[in-house]
Amino acid sequence: MIIKVCGMREAHNIHEVSQLGIDWVGLDFEPKSERYVSQISSCAGIIPDYSSLSDLSSHDSSQQQQRPILCGVFADDMPQNIVTRVYNFNLDVVQLNGEENMVMVDNLRRTLDPDIHAGIKIMKRIVITKREDIEKYKEYAEGVDYFLFDIQDNLKDWSILEAYEGKIPFLVSGNIGIEEADKIKTFSHPQFYGISINEKFETAPAVKDVALMKNFLERVK
């Protein structure tokens, strides 16, 4: 199970959190977000030098001692903006949170891979308010690498995800906090790949509580 920490922005905070052994760092490029990473920023200004880290862990042992996967979060953005950020921040994953269709996804992948970032991965977020929402995955089943099932507050039981019959790995998000540690440890699905955490671990927008996150990781790993 991978741990994605989304909504990060401060280099020092990213450095501290990375040393805990998290797998993905999420950078939010949605302009209306409190955690928005400004377009004028660049990798050099926000992403720390991971070569100095000595205790990174990863689901892939070959990535030991390297930086976490960098995931850029977008919603109905113009393709050229996404391409610019992939290049400037050396993003490994593009997460699409809007109403993007498969034509857009296909065109984006062709533009990025291999010229901008060979092997770029694309993840589509699907908001889950009821069981039927899971069926939306079928629209993207042939064109994305991961799904992010964003479970809304009205749903407390992750067993609803048993309805997912696809072959593409998925992450789960949805206001996940330390109180969900036991639920995460007992949840099982053949395509369950990891979780995405954010607000419940913040002291301020885009600033993660390192001690709280360390406690959480010790409980779920």
Rank of each mutant, 00 (worst) to 15 (best):
N198P: 09
M78W: 05
F187E: 11
R125S: 01
Q63M: 15
E34L: 07
A204F: 05
Y164S: 05
P190W: 12
G45V: 13
E100T: 08
V105W: 06
F201M: 01
I122F: 00
P190H: 15
D115W: 00
V83L: 10
K200F: 02
C43S: 12
E34V: 08
Q152Y: 08
S54D: 10
R131A: 11
E165N: 11
I3Q: 05
I160Y: 11
G7P: 05
A211N: 03
S62L: 11
D92K: 02
N90D: 14
D209A: 08
I69F: 13
I134E: 02
A75C: 14
R109T: 01
G177E: 00
L27G: 04
S188C: 14
K130T: 07
Y36S: 09
E162I: 08
K214S: 05
K32E: 10
D106M: 01
K208D: 10
H189R: 00
A163W: 00
T186Q: 03
E139V: 14
Q152V: 13
L96W: 07
T186D: 04
D113C: 11
G119S: 05
T111W: 05
M1L: 09
R125T: 07
L148A: 09
S38F: 12
Q66K: 15
F147P: 05
S38D: 14
K185Y: 09
D209L: 03
N175Y: 06
P48W: 08
F149E: 02
D182V: 08
I184S: 02
S188T: 14
V5G: 06
N88R: 10
S41L: 13
L161M: 09
N198R: 10
R125Y: 01
D113V: 13
G143Q: 08
V127M: 12
A44T: 13
W158M: 11
S33F: 12
T203K: 05
S196F: 02
I3M: 00
S173E: 06
E139D: 15
D113E: 10
N107A: 02
V172A: 01
E135H: 03
I2E: 13
Y87I: 15
Y193T: 07
F201R: 04
D55H: 13
P190N: 13
S61H: 05
G26T: 06
K130S: 06
M1P: 08
I134G: 13
L27I: 06
E100N: 06
K136N: 15
S54Y: 10
G26I: 06
E202Y: 02
I69G: 07
P79Y: 05
P31D: 06
G177T: 07
A206M: 09
P79A: 10
L108H: 08
I160V: 15
D115S: 05
E132D: 07
V144C: 03
V25M: 01
R110T: 02
A44D: 12
V103K: 09
L217D: 04
E16R: 15
H189Q: 07
Y36D: 09
V25A: 00
R67Y: 14
S57F: 04
K221E: 04
Y137D: 03
E202G: 04
Y36W: 14
V93K: 04
